[in-house]
Structure formats: C-alpha cells, structure tokens
Design a protein around this nucleic acid. Sequence first.
DNA 1: CGGGTTCTTGACTAGTTTCAAGCAAAGTGG
DNA 2: CCACTTTGCTTGAAACTAGTCAAGAACCCG
Lengths: 275, 275
Amino acid sequence: MEHCGRLFCTPLTDRPSNQIGAAMDSSRLPANARLLPCELCPLRPRPALREFSPEELAFVKSFKVDELRVAAGTNFLRERTQSEHLYTVLSGWAFRYKLLDDGRRQILNYAIPADMLGLQGAIMKEMEHSVDALTPMALCVFPRTRLWDLYSRFPSLAFDITWLAAREEQHIDENLLSLGRRSALERLAYLLLHLFARAEEVGLTQNRSVQFPFTQQHLADSLGMSLVHTNRTVQRLLATKIVRWNNRVFEVVDRDELAVLAGDEAQPRVPRPFI
Amino acid sequence: MEHCGRLFCTPLTDRPSNQIGAAMDSSRLPANARLLPCELCPLRPRPALREFSPEELAFVKSFKVDELRVAAGTNFLRERTQSEHLYTVLSGWAFRYKLLDDGRRQILNYAIPADMLGLQGAIMKEMEHSVDALTPMALCVFPRTRLWDLYSRFPSLAFDITWLAAREEQHIDENLLSLGRRSALERLAYLLLHLFARAEEVGLTQNRSVQFPFTQQHLADSLGMSLVHTNRTVQRLLATKIVRWNNRVFEVVDRDELAVLAGDEAQPRVPRPFI
DNA sequence: CGGGTTCTTGACTAGTTTCAAGCAAAGTGG
DNA sequence: CCACTTTGCTTGAAACTAGTCAAGAACCCG
C-alpha cells in the first residue's frame, strides 16, 4: 500500500489531480470539467447516509453549481472571511482549525467525504475558522445565496442541515471533553478511534485499516499537545499493540481495547443526512 | 449585593421559586401557573435579538406549550436520554456538560437567557450531554414533535434554529482553541470576558459588572484544569487588577487589557435570532 | 544524490496535578 | 442563638506531566 494510495479516494476521484494548482479560494476548474451528476453520487448509496426523494434529489442537483478540485495543502476557507459557497466533500480529507495571533494552531475537526464545510460562513456573516485540504480533494459547490431557497422549499433538507450542524457540534463537544479531561493517551486513542469510525461510515476503510493522511504535527494540533509529547504518546500507544501504524496506514488490532482506552461508550449509528 | 441577587434575574422572575423541587425532567408546574405570553416576552425587546413578524410571533406563541421553573442544581436534561422538549432560557443560568465514566466532568458551555437548550436531543435521537441549572431558572418549553411543523411552515424560524446551532458550535470552537492552545491565564481571561460579553447582550450586566453564579469548581471544569490550579490562576488574574471579583460579583476594570490577555479579536455583533 | 519534511531521542525546565490541611462564610437544628 | 456541618476558597509541598531546545535519523521527492 503505497503513499497517497486509494484507501481515502472514492472510485470517481481515483486519480486526484495534484497538478491542478488550486491555490486560492476562487480558483475553479475550467468549464470543460464535467460535474458529477448527483444521481450518480458515489456516496449516496452508502448505508450510513439517508436516501433522497426524487424531488430532493432534483433540487440538490440544481443547488450544486460547481465541482471544485483542490490540491493538498490548499486553504480554501479562511477565518474572518465571508464565503460565497458551501461545500460538501466528495473525496479527500480536510481539517478545520483556528489560529491565535502568535501562530498557535488548534485543529477543531477533520472533514471526510459526505461532510459539509462552510455552513457557518453561509449562515453567519463570517467564518470563524479556516479549512485546509489535507489531501487532494473534490468538493461539491453550493451557492450560499440559494440556501434560503432550500429552507423555504425543502424543509426536509433544512432539517438535514440543522442535523449536520448539530452533529458537528457533538463531535466538538467530544473533543472538548478530551482536551479538558482525558489524559494524553486516552485523548489520542479517542481521536484515532473516532476518525477510524467516521472513515468506516463512508467506506474509507479496508478490514480494520485506513489511510490516515495527517502528520504527527496535525495530531499534536488536534490534541492540544506539543509535537514531541505527541510522538512519545503515539509510541506508548503502539507499544500496547492495540493498533498498528506504518507509513500512513493505521490499523485497529483490538477495537474493544481501543474503545476502553478511549473511555468511549460505543454509540449505535443510524443513517444520517447528507447533502 | 447579597447572594442570589437580582443581577442575573430578569424582571419577571425576580423571586425565583427555590422551593419548587423540580427534581426530574418530567416535573412540570401545576396547570394553574400562567404562561408568560410571548408578546410580552421581556427578552424580545433587547437590541441584540432580532424581531419577529406577527406571523412568527403567533406561531412561536402556539409552539410554546409550557413554562418550566426549576431550582438551582436541577439536572433537567440528561446524557444518553431522549428529551421530549426543547427549551429556551427565560431567566437564570445553566451549564451543559459531559461526564467520563469515572466522574471527570467537562463543562462545555453555559446557557443564559435567550439561549436554546436541548436542540440536539430534539434533532438527533439522544442527547450527548447533560444540562444542570446553576441558579433557579424559568424555561419556555417547546415540544419536539412540533419542530417539524416549524420547519415546514416557517423557514425563517428554521433558519434561525440553524443559526443558533451554528453559533453554539462557534462558542465551542473557541473553547476548544482555549483548552488546546491557550495558557491557563489566557484561558481564564477568555472565558470570563466572553461570559461577560454574552451576559451583557441580554442585559445581565450593570456598568461593568455581572453576578456570576458559578464556583471555582465550575470554572475548573470549564477550563479543563484542577480546582487548585484554577484557584491560583484566578488569584494571578486578580493580582493584575484588570478585573475584580468579590462574593459572586465580577467586575471588568479594564476591558481592553482583558481582551489582550485573552488573545481575543473583538468581534462586532449583529442582532441574533431568538426563539 | 541532495534537500526538505517528518519522526525520534535525550536532557532540562516549566506547568499542572495531587494530597493534605486549614479557614471562612453560610446553612441547619436543637 | 449557638454548636455543628457543609460548601467554597486558599495554601504548601511533592510528584508527575508536558513543553522546550537541540540534534540526529529516516523517509520522500524531484
């Protein structure tokens, strides 16, 4: 399994276009790029995602005005900025983060396929966080100007959006619990287990392994620890043999043990909305 | 200014009924208690809150089915539980928190008048956090069963609810940044400044002071620190003379300095929704 | 091959928790 | 109205956790 392998790519975006230098928020693909029609969306069939009625599907299809491809490392949503767009991740990983004046960074959460980004910016006046691509990504682009249309004509979709916002909040609540009250090792175990579980939901796992695209520096910035301490904690976790982690491939050897370490009460999942 | 003073009580709930032992979620006020009609809502006129159209007002009035009064310390929303209701705080303070198995507690946020509680439980199947009253409270009660009605008939209110969810997420994002990347002193300064600013929005402040109802233990559980270290940090903050804090009365002496300490970029506020 | 990024390690320092105790104010009950 | 209990705040010392600095190793990529 070589670097930037297929594990984190959905079939339709198998050959991510690293070479497309999408440097800025405004950079879109040339018009000749064809949009993936929503009825062929590779994510929709996943059992974790709720189905659409034909009317919903038709609306969403018209709501999607573009498809954006960005290179790994692209900063495509910026703090204190107003964004014209709302995105859904089609493929690839991103992370949401905030910065302090002196450069200290806190990663708030990761986004994977089927996650929505930029909702805050679409609803409030400004974004209060930034988002960077961690890998090459494909994003569905929705105009914020039509969000009102969605709310008036499709209450079911409006409800879904609120659902997604509430779920995002839940994730951050969990994270806050981690940073505030879990030990370094528990925190790490919790984060890795939950990223694994989310990746599983959208089919990014094979057996018990995923391709995790982040570095230990990202991990450190997620866990609120220094790089050095993160490294030592990772080694401590690996020493337990509960997980394996070589190259960028992460494997859960004993999921129950990992859950115990994470202090996690496993929660049953129900199909979730996805727009 | 004596304990449980008026600073944190809105006019209409001036004499909080401590003696009403509202022990459980299901405990409601006897039917003889009259509901405060929404058109006389004491919060609505505040400049920080957006106005309603007559239709919206009429709907919300019918949406509000009860008014709940709970004593300080009441746990009125519980983790892993499904709640039939959605609440808006009319008066008093509450806090949202999560617990780990062994009792470690992380306070996620505080709720003050005009804040909505229990949205997560109304939208998802279960609550993922608990909420306790910090003071005697009055709450408007909305049935989750009619939330769908709201979404289909009043997209503007549906939008407001999403707005409120997004705002709550913003607060937690900030908190996560604090716990992960701010020093103990910065963290404390940030929390206090922001609670002060929120209290100000809904008229809980007088000059530069508020009645803060929480103890240092609550503070510790909010900041992710031990009680002892919180105490020393509070003393360190008081030593700067930037704030005063006697009995439960907190006073901001030099707001700019406090903002600098907190590493806070002051954000301009626009009127927010309130249901 | 060479330069950059990522990971690893050791030694030292700073920050934070834990334990233990004492004190002050408020609340309770005879 | 006065012991008595409880709750919240404060303090010191010891132990531990985590951060910083510095340097080297491993890996990746052109």
